[in-house]
Structures are given as structure tokens and as C-alpha cells.
Simulated scan of single mutants.
Amino acid sequence: MNLEILTPEKKLFSGDVYGVQLPGVTGLFEVLEKHAPLVSALKAGRVKVLKDKNNHLAFYTIQSGFVEVINNKVTVLVEGAAPVETK
């Protein structure tokens, strides 16, 4: 599935991923391939991007925003975001 993480200033991430974990306003949830259509509010927190089935991960801290899931495309629209460096 395709994931885009967008802020008003720039496109922070765009690419094919295995899944993504998001901080919903009522708790964390995960979106995988062929997920049902969804629109949800997001709170400030951490997004975990599952780049593939081999556990290659990327993390982003986000401010509040929204996510839309439709036709195997996940669009995350947030007020601000930054990549988290992992060791």
C-alpha cells in the first residue's frame, strides 16, 4: 500500500509500505494492506512505518491531524512532523 505523510510545508514521506501504526485520538491503531476505507483524527504522538515484512521501521513524531485510508492509499495530514532518528 502507498503511504504519504504531509504537512502544510512539505511532503515528509511518500512510498510503498507494509503497514503503519498511528496515534488516534482514542488510542493507537494500525493500518495494513487492503484496509477498509477510513477517516480518523490523530493526536500528537509517534507514527511507526512498517516498511516491509522484514521489520524495517521508520518513526515520525507528529502533531495533531487526520488520516484517510482509501483504495490501498494512506494519507496522513498533520500540522507538523519530523523523522525520529533510530539507532
Rank of each mutant, 00 (worst) to 15 (best):
M1I: 01
M1L: 01
M1R: 00
N2T: 00
L3P: 03
L3E: 03
L3H: 01
E4K: 04
E4V: 02
E4G: 05
E4W: 01
I5F: 03
L6N: 04
T7C: 01
P8R: 09
P8N: 10
E9Q: 05
K10I: 09
K10Q: 11
K10C: 08
K11M: 09
K11Q: 08
L12D: 03
L12G: 04
L12I: 06
L12H: 01
F13P: 04
F13V: 07
F13I: 07
S14R: 09
D16P: 10
V17T: 07
V17S: 00
V17N: 02
G19F: 10
V20L: 03
Q21N: 08
Q21P: 02
Q21V: 08
L22K: 11
L22D: 15
L22S: 10
P23D: 05
P23N: 09
G24P: 13
G24H: 04
G24I: 10
V25A: 05
V25K: 05
V25R: 02
T26D: 13
T26L: 10
T26G: 01
G27W: 04
G27T: 02
L28D: 15
F29L: 11
F29K: 08
F29C: 03
E30F: 15
E30V: 15
E30H: 14
V31R: 00
V31G: 01
E33T: 15
E33Q: 15
K34D: 14
K34M: 13
A36T: 07
P37G: 08
P37C: 09
L38R: 10
L38Q: 08
V39A: 13
V39W: 12
V39L: 05
S40E: 15
A41E: 14
A41R: 14
A41C: 10
A41Q: 11
L42M: 07
G45Q: 06
G45E: 02
R46W: 06
V47C: 00
K48D: 14
V49T: 03
V49M: 03
V49S: 03
V49N: 01
L50A: 14
K51F: 11
K51M: 15
K51W: 06
K51V: 10
D52S: 06
D52L: 05
N55M: 12
N55Q: 13
L57V: 15
L57H: 14
A58F: 13
A58P: 12
A58I: 12
F59S: 06
F59V: 07
Y60K: 05
Y60F: 15
Y60W: 11
Y60E: 09
Y60V: 08
T61Y: 06
T61L: 07
I62A: 00
Q63N: 14
Q63T: 13
Q63R: 13
Q63Y: 06
S64P: 08
S64F: 08
G65Y: 02
G65V: 00
G65R: 03
F66N: 07
F66C: 05
V67D: 05
E68T: 04
E68C: 06
V69T: 02
V69L: 03
I70R: 12
N71D: 11
N72V: 13
K73C: 01
V74Q: 02
V74S: 10
T75A: 10
T75Y: 12
T75W: 11
T75C: 06
V76Q: 06
L77C: 06
V78I: 07
E79V: 13
E79F: 14
E79C: 13
A81V: 12
A81P: 06
A81R: 09
A81K: 09
A82K: 15
P83S: 06
V84L: 02
E85H: 13
E85W: 13
T86Q: 15
T86E: 12
K87I: 12
